[in-house]
Simulated assay, not measured.
Amino acid sequence: MADKDQLLTPSIPTEQPRERLLRLGPGALRADELLACIMQSGNGRQTVFDIAHALLENVGGLYALVDTEVAELLNVPGIGRAKAIQIAAAIELGRRIAQKPSETRLQIRTADDAARYVMDRMRYLKKEHFVTLLLDTKHRLVAEETCSIGSLDASIVHPREIFRRAVRRVASAILCVHNHPSGDPTPSPEDIAVTERLMQAGRVLGIDVLDHLIIGDGRFISLRAAGYMDK
């Protein structure tokens, strides 16, 4: 869902966004103004604000940019190869910064802890992303790995890939998370089957699968709490 102020018809301010950013800081700028700073200029037919506004409308708002590919950016009127690359690079930088564990190393004590950590980043994704949180013996976050990106309604997950990364990071436990783009976190038969396979593989390797969370729009389901991991 797009924020209302991101899809309003933009008005060109008398003070350009770069000057406002320098004077007030980036937090004072709207989403279209931040995009204008990244893209820097318009073209002969559109101002940079027109292009920024068209981009937000086309992808469905600011949060949808996280899952927008370069090819999709190129379909937006006014965005060519150079601007698409600038935007994609800025999005990826933001994603990597958001995924960096804090210096104090977040401790995942409960499903709520894990859900709070990923919710804002995963609830708006348009495709299923399967993510593993790799944890040490005290369940502190060692790393976060995106293991699979599926279609709108399915995600293919290979236990060998998930546990290869866990072994490489010397993780003693993992917690799995994936999103449902529909917003409904109800587990599917495939979700339950994948969880069972991962639990079996984890037992062989001595790496605990603590839980599997399904993220919806502002809510989640823990397969552990729901009783699917009691076997």
Rank of each mutant, 00 (worst) to 15 (best):
V131A: 02
Q6Y: 01
Q86W: 10
A52C: 01
K100R: 15
A111F: 06
A201W: 04
V204L: 09
H53N: 09
G25L: 13
C176I: 00
G227E: 00
L152D: 12
Q200L: 06
R96I: 11
V142I: 15
Q40I: 03
C37G: 05
R109N: 15
L74H: 12
K231V: 01
A193E: 08
G61E: 07
F220H: 09
D32N: 15
L55G: 04
S151K: 14
T186L: 05
K231P: 03
G42V: 04
A2L: 04
K138V: 13
A193G: 12
G27K: 12
Y63V: 04
P187V: 00
L134Y: 10
M1D: 10
T132A: 13
A54V: 07
D3Q: 14
I149K: 14
Q46G: 05
V76N: 01
H212W: 03
L21F: 09
P26H: 08
S172Y: 06
V59G: 07
G80M: 09
L106D: 04
E19S: 13
I162Y: 05
A226P: 01
L21I: 02
D112E: 12
R109S: 12
P159G: 10
S172W: 07
L141D: 11
A54W: 08
A111G: 14
D3K: 12
R121G: 14
L152W: 13
H212M: 03
I12L: 10
L133V: 10
N43A: 06
A88V: 06
P77K: 11
M122G: 07
T104P: 00
Q86E: 13
L35E: 05
S148P: 04
L134H: 14
R160N: 09
R30P: 04
